[in-house]
Design a protein around this nucleic acid. Structure first.
Lengths: 144, 144
DNA sequence: TTGTTCTTGATTAACTCAGTCGGCAATGGT
DNA sequence: ACCATTGCCGACTGAGTTAATCAAGAACAA
């Protein structure tokens, strides 16, 4: 039930990029300094976000990173899935990365009690994270 | 955001112990066989649950484990906390194991966006798991 | 062409997860 | 008294993950 440092740093980095959105690009070391993140570690996070299509980047002297989409089109759920994988606590209730539970007496029976509770937990988590956009996040508000 | 095998096995073992509650005691190997759990691994799980005050046990020939409390007094939240630690995705929003976030630009400012979202996630998870009892669990029902 | 910045891949130490093993302690059966 | 059975406890292991760090290369601007 834990969020990795990677995801936490990603969210904090995107916070900076959201406020800079439309105005400037930001460089690794700027983001790292403002959010107290090790630069080289931040680097591979930004790269992952870039490969996932959230960021654009430029090399060289006036280089840096910037958001490629509008902050209200990106949800925290998307971001966390990129870095930490599925939100579901257990594979057999994941919607984005379902995995049949092998070696379980209930197999993939939908009556399985574990599957039932964890399904509601997954829905609760995804319900929040998939409706919470970067725009909400940066402004500190909550949205249904 | 993942549930450990340990917790999953614990829940499945308690499922067996709940149905046996009041009737019989169950031995490691019985639970292990019915739920397809490696016996030696199950052992240390049952021990942890015992130390936490959920189970009683007897050694020797007619030994075994049994629930020490009523199934509707034990919640899944309690069980998971015993084996996996706090439910909160991040230390600074945990209610049972709060930890001030060091090296974060917002420190322990309650305005911290990360703290805000993750707080609602924590509440959602705990809201489900701390109200879901073993009795509910074994009968497959949900309860507010 | 030079210095800046992003890009890629490898490498690392520490830690956690999932499971195993061996020996000890208590209990019941004979 | 002895022995099989069962739980109790601690140590250990191999695989994988986390959180970084490092070195070399490619694009870009001045």
């Amino acid at each position: 039930m834990k969020l990795s440092k990677k995801s936490e740093y990603a969210l904090r980095a995107l916070l900076e990029l959201t406020t800079a959105h439309g105005t400037t690009t930001l460089q690794r070391h700027e983001i790292a300094a403002r959010q107290h993140i090790p630069v080289e570690f931040l680097e591979q996070i930004l790269l992952a976000l870039k490969r996932a299509g959230l960021l654009a980047s430029r090399r060289g002297m006036k280089g840096g990173y910037s958001l490629i989409k509008s902050p209200n089109e990106i949800t925290l759920g998307q971001v966390i899935r990129i870095l930490d994988g599925p939100l579901a606590p257990i594979g057999c209730v994941s919607k984005t990365a379902y995995q049949k539970c092998r070696e379980c007496p209930y197999a993939d029976d939908p009556q399985c009690p574990v599957q039932h509770v964890m399904g509601t937990v997954r829905d609760a988590i995804a319900g929040i994270l998939d409706h919470y956009t970067l725009a909400d996040f940066a402004s500190g508000s909550r949205q249904a």
